[in-house]
Design a protein around this nucleic acid. Structure first.
Lengths: 165, 165
DNA sequence: TCTATTGCGGATAAAAAATATCTGTAATAT
DNA sequence: ATATTACAGATATTTTTTATCCGCAATAGA
């Protein structure tokens, strides 16, 4: 029931990209360095986000990643599902249909398993909650609540990096 | 983000035990056979549930497991947390405090990371939803919705097993 | 056109976690 | 006493996660 730490990285990257000046991009290497995570592995995650239409890729020198959509269109759920895959976290093995007391015909089991239903319902409220949180909301909160010194330092580092090109 | 299949087994076992005649118990072996799952491994899960006060153990011949509490007191969340552990599924590595733009003093990060907060909020609604579902609710639904033939067959198998002792 | 930079896809490797089993011990009903 | 059952710990197997590497494609700038 653990969510991969890659998800944490991916959200931080998307969150950062959502605050970049319009049109600018950032390389996988810089994103990795900024967050202090391994570059080749983070690159994989960014490629996945790119394949799923969350990030847009810019190839060649001066290339990198930028958001493919407006921050108000991208939710935490989108990012989580992109990285983790959109399969349910609870898999029903239909064990009610196994063992000595199971009925022969599988047509006897028209209704979904009550246990699986309950688990899936809970997962749905989880997903709905995550889908409510868009990158734009996160960005607003960051600008309102995060220490201005921190924001300045981050912005300076990013600006310096893009100047070196 | 996968929930162990052991959780599915555990819930099915608890659900079954909640429908047993008062005072009776069922062995790990029979529970495993009934559900068509490996006995030694299921036994581990049952021991965990027992350690966490969800099941009660009866040692010796005619022993086995029974619910330790009234079915209205045990929720799906209790079972999930017992098997999976009660750690959050999202772990915040505080990567905002890593990398070149981090501030020196960790006292600068008094407020929780906004991304982690959002993830934890979603997990909370998930847990709340699971905690609403008690074994007693499940039992009511089973009795109302499951094919009576199925219920009969299961009850007969269990009765026959306990007679053989 | 050439070169350096960057992302992409596939293969591979290492580490960690999940899954599964076994063995000897303790408890207890008969 | 004996047979049955749960329990704790050790161990083995399999799968998943985490991480890296390499050759190819795309492209900006000289």
């Amino acid at each position: 029931m653990k969510i991969s730490s890659t998800v944490e990285w991916a959200i931080h990257c998307c969150s950062l990209l959502s605050g970049l000046p319009a049109g600018s991009s950032m390389t996988a290497k810089d994103l990795a360095e900024f967050h202090g995570v391994p570059h080749p592995y983070l690159a994989k995650a960014l490629q996945t986000l790119s394949n799923d239409g969350i990030l847009r890729t810019v190839s060649g020198p001066k290339g990198g990643y930028k958001l493919a959509q407006h921050p108000s269109k991208v939710s935490l759920l989108d990012i989580v599902l992109s990285i983790e895959g959109d399969e349910s976290c609870f898999e029903c093995d239909e064990i009610r249909q196994k063992g000595p007391s199971a009925l022969e015909r599988s047509s006897s089991y028209k209704r979904p398993c009550l246990i699986a239903s309950a688990m899936w319902k809970a997962e749905k409220v989880w997903r709905d909650e995550l889908d409510k949180v868009k990158l734009s909301h996160l960005l607003e909160k960051v600008e309102a609540e995060v220490d201005p010194k921190q924001l300045k330092k981050a912005a300076d580092w990013i600006a310096q990096k893009s100047q070196k090109k």
